[in-house]
């Protein structure tokens, strides 16, 4: 999916209920609760944090282009967008949130190191300057010391790239961005120019391949490189649904009615949400001073056992559990 279509798609889903800038914040992966909750509410998780380095200029340029082409009309505070042609994509920004780039940087440095090592040249300028990545790869090389490491990695990459769901263009983007001995990588801009496409479109094609492939990694070396790169979706489907209702202003009782679930189940959802989302606002359900009282009790009684707390404070279990999801 190219950048123009992507922006149109997101604008269409927001359906003019958010400003024209909302897709920009979503793509950048802004960490505000508004953007995060919007991603969930509008089912836009696939596009969250796709392009953390997107500049406002290039975003504004594509908006201007869409307007000029007649695909988008801006009328004070609202917009109308022409629906883009139906397209499926493999994006899953919410699960990676930049982790796919971390994975790739590790792979770039590992391939470079192994390639230089094959050529018996240990003096080279690392393609990745980030010290955390350098440290990771150093540790990796300490852990995997077999002589056939380069060959094993080669086999793993080839079999991963053999997947028919990705195109030859994506395979090129993957491999030519790796550097080897006397074979410096190509920049995205250079690769894009060989196909006469915009750099950002090449970036999206590369990302889409990564998002698809990384979930299918089953081989040991690549799995080790993936460590910590995928955020497992912390919310169960049901809790996510409850969150959607809450974001629309429903009370807990209304959600229970609407979803034909017990109030206790909804309470469990709220606890789950609060645990997993530090930005989730709990004050509608428990007052600040109650939260402080619970924590004072934890400190004096030196326990977090609910039964003890409940008996001492005489507050219901839900409120105590919710209070305990926050530190004071």
């Amino acid at each position: 999916m190219n950048f123009q279509l992507l922006v149109r798609q997101i604008l269409l889903i927001f359906n003019s209920e958010r400003t024209i800038s909302a897709p920009y914040h979503l793509l950048k992966g802004k960490k505000s609760s508004q953007t995060l909750e919007d991603a969930v509410l509008f089912h836009l998780q696939p596009y969250y944090h796709l392009l953390p380095f997107l500049t406002r200029e290039s975003y504004d340029a594509v908006i201007a282009k869409l307007c000029q082409q007649g695909d988008l009309q801006l009328t004070n505070e609202r917009y109308t967008v022409k629906p883009p042609p139906q397209q499926s994509s493999h994006f899953d920004g919410f699960s990676y949130r930049g982790g796919e780039r971390v994975f790739f940087a590790r792979l770039q440095l590992l391939v470079q190191t192994l390639s230089q090592r094959n050529a018996q040249n240990m003096k080279f300028v690392p393609v990745v300057t980030d010290l955390r990545i350098q440290r990771f790869v150093k540790q990796f090389l300490r852990r995997y010391t077999t002589a056939s490491l380069a060959e094993d990695l080669y086999k793993e990459i080839v079999s991963l790239l053999a997947d028919e769901a990705i195109s030859d263009w994506q395979r090129l983007l993957f491999t030519y961005r790796l550097s080897g001995y006397e074979q410096p990588a190509q920049t995205l801009e250079q690769l894009a120019s060989t196909k006469d496409v915009a750099t950002i479109d090449a970036e999206l094609a590369w990302l889409e391949a990564l998002h698809y492939l990384l979930k299918r990694v089953e081989s040991p070396l690549l799995l080790a490189l993936l460590e910590g790169c995928i955020v497992s979706e912390p919310l169960t489907v049901s809790a996510a649904k409850t969150l959607q209702f809450l974001a629309q202003g429903y009370t807990l009782e209304q959600v229970a009615n609407e979803r034909k679930l017990k109030l206790a189940t909804i309470h469990d959802h709220v606890i789950e949400i609060a645990r997993n989302r530090p930005t989730f606002d709990i004050t509608p359900y428990v007052e600040d001073k109650i939260v402080r009282r619970v924590h004072q009790a934890v400190a004096t009684l030196k326990t977090r056992r609910l039964k003890v707390l409940q008996q001492t404070l005489n507050i219901d279990y839900f409120t105590i559990r919710l209070a305990l999801t926050r530190e004071v």
């Binding site: 390639s115 790796l178 080897g180 074979q183």
Partner: peptide
């Protein structure tokens, strides 16, 4: 792409 990977790693 396949050739490039070969040249880099084998």
């Amino acid at each position: 792409w396949a050739l490039r990977l070969q040249q880099m790693l084998l």
